[in-house]
Design a protein around this nucleic acid. Structure first.
Length: 557
RNA sequence: UGCCCGAUAGUAUAAUGGUAGUACAUCAGAUUUUGGUUCUGACUGUCUAGGUUCGAAUCCUGGUCGGGCAACCA
């Protein structure tokens, strides 16, 4: 037998080389979210990478909150991030915070000042920006650049002591104002922020910048492979510079291309706008690409992890077809979802030759993908049934296998019926469909020899349970809202949420729970919403549709 | 007009100097008490021009195109 060798991605190659050469005996990664928003599917890619790599090579992964900007960060986000991580199925080695290292980072800064590699600058933000030059022109030195070590030391101590207002002074690294890399032009290390921090409270009024915190935090945790997205590539020389000048554990930064997906946006800034401006109903709105949104919509973690596995990892910009995610979700749910019948847009079907007071209990297989294991549930059948309005046509189209006068169809798990016509109101609208059932065709006991092309789902009117059903479509009308002209919000799909108030579901759904996953036969995968509806009805969210060959056929015209 | 990075079917992703393969999507067919699932088949690709080599998607050079970099954000 041939053994398929799975090829390595570029990070796995680096790690295998590092392990083989003896550079490291084990690896240590970290997932470093900033607690200023909820995790989305793009983070899932990073999470699966960091935890997956450590898992594959027997290493460890820390969770580290990058909380160096007290103005935007909140405990609510910390909690949601931890919950989402656990939901996805990952456990971290240690829970750390960049803020754990504030005093160590302060000491690092003092060390650089003493080496003559950092100085306190009195320039305003505007002045610093102006003096930074442009990519094609060198920057110019601040008058403060050549302060003495002693003066810098005492000014920095005074910054920390709260002697200055926000923006009055900053601490900058003294590197090279002529560097072609803008990040090396005396980057800011510390700024003054008299702000309350979600963990350190009011202990500090100076906070380190990302560049002065991230690499050192990696180093403190002896992270061997610090994986981040491509936009940090130009930060790498600075990352290395701090580590070298401080002579601390040499963590290494590697960059990969972030995930983009069609018909959505993936920046926390944009997602926050959608939330704040009420285009969606919170971070966990089922239309959001957030993990909490996907959870509420009915995606299972395993589907998301399979997806992350399939998309791979590279250094080139990409935009993944959201269809691939949906494929992964269907692939998973098809295996485990319990089959149920639900009529979303009902019309009455009367079986005119069936006795008025008769009720039969038929059996419905819970899951044909698990033959013999899923078991059956009981479904009441009677003379009046709800069926899907779209399953009836007055005049049958070409290749129409459903109800139309003269057509025969199978009522799933029950009888074959022949359509005999319909009842209409004064305006000509169909109010009732009529049919006769054929004796001897009951499922499991069919000795008629008849075969029909179509099978439709139904619910006994007398036994139906009312429900609200929410259908979700893509949030945006264009593949890549971020590259379109104007505000991305102009491209929001106005029909991304459709609420059906008059749906009926079968009795066994009365006891549904939000963590259950159902396939409403012929309609898609659904799960109970995490929140109750205003009128006490069951609320079902459509997780994803089924593939629909008829919709394609119909579209051909 | 500076620096850094990238370019393989529609979208992703392999091939690590030696037959361009896989998945999703698309199309066609088979099976089916879900127009689902499953199965079979088809379609479509190495940005460009040179060079090195017996041989280049792969190495070198030029070009083109795309992305990133001038926050007291991360």
């Amino acid at each position: 037998m041939m053994i398929e060798e799975k090829s390595l991605n570029f990070l796995e190659e680096i790690i295998e080389e590092d392990l083989k050469s003896g550079k490291y005996t084990s690896i240590h990664t970290r997932f470093p979210p900033e607690p200023n928003g909820y995790l989305h599917i793009g983070h899932a890619k990073s999470i699966c990478l960091n935890f997956g790599l450590a898992d594959k090579y027997g290493g460890k992964t820390n969770l580290r909150f990058d909380d160096t900007n007290p103005v935007t960060e909140e405990t609510e986000y910390v909690d949601s991030i931890k919950a989402d991580l656990h939901w996805l199925g990952f456990d971290w080695e240690e829970e750390r915070y960049a803020s754990d290292y504030f005093s160590q980072l302060y000491d690092f800064a003092v060390r650089l000042i003493k080496k003559g590699l950092a100085y306190v600058d009195d320039s305003s933000a505007d002045e610093i920006a102006a003096n930074k030059g442009t990519p094609t022109e060198a920057g110019t030195e601040s008058p403060c650049r050549n302060r003495s070590v002693e003066e810098n030391l005492s000014l920095f101590a005074e910054m920390r002591a709260g002697k200055f207002q926000d923006g009055e002074k900053v601490l900058r690294a003294k590197i090279d104002l002529t560097s072609p890399n803008m990040h090396m032009r005396d980057p800011i290390m510390y700024r003054i922020r008299h702000a309350h921090h979600h963990r350190t409270g009011d202990e500090w009024c100076i906070y380190p910048m990302y560049d002065f915190a991230h690499g050192q935090s990696d180093s403190i945790e002896t992270i061997t492979h610090s994986i981040c997205t491509l936009e940090f590539e130009v930060h790498r020389p600075l990352y290395n510079w701090y580590i070298e000048q401080l002579d601390i554990f040499p963590s290494h930064q590697y960059e990969f291309a972030r995930l983009n997906m069609t018909y959505t946006v993936m920046s926390k800034r944009k997602l926050l706008q959608l939330v704040n401006e009420n285009f969606v109903d919170g971070w966990d709105d089922p239309r959001m690409p957030t993990l909490s949104g996907m959870r509420r919509r009915g995606y299972r973690p395993v589907a998301i992890r399979n997806f992350c596995d399939r998309i791979g990892v590279q250094r080139r910009e990409n935009i993944i077809d959201v269809g691939l995610l949906e494929f992964c979700v269907r692939e998973d749910l098809n295996q485990i979802a319990l089959r149920r019948m639900a009529v979303l847009d009902p019309i009455k079907l009367v079986v005119t030759n069936y006795p008025e007071d008769k009720i039969e209990i038929v059996a419905g297989e819970n899951n044909p993908e698990a033959p013999g294991q899923g078991g059956f549930r009981e479904i009441p059948f009677s003379r009046e049934l709800w069926i899907e309005a779209e399953d009836y046509m007055e005049v049958a189209a070409k290749k129409w296998f459903r109800l139309a006068p003269g057509n025969k169809v199978r009522l799933k798990n029950a009888y074959i019926v022949e359509c005999t016509g319909s009842k209409k109101d004064a305006s000509g609208k169909v109010t009732e469909v009529h049919c006769t059932y054929i004796e001897g065709t009951r499922s499991g006991q069919d000795n008629s020899g008849l075969s029909v092309k179509g099978t439709i789902h139904w619910i006994s009117v007398a036994h139906a349970i009312p429900a609200e059903v929410r259908l979700y479509d893509r949030l945006f009308q264009v593949e890549n809202p971020s590259i379109e002209e104007g505000d991305f919000k102009e491209y929001i799909n106005p029909d991304s949420l459709q609420i059906l108030h008059n749906a009926w579901v079968e009795p066994s759904l009365q006891t549904a729970l939000p963590e259950d996953h159902y396939q409403f036969i012929r309609k898609g995968y659904f799960s109970l919403d995490a929140y109750k509806s205003a009128d006490g009805k069951l609320v079902f969210n459509r997780t994803v549709t089924l593939k629909d060959a008829w919709a394609k056929e119909a579209k051909k015209k």
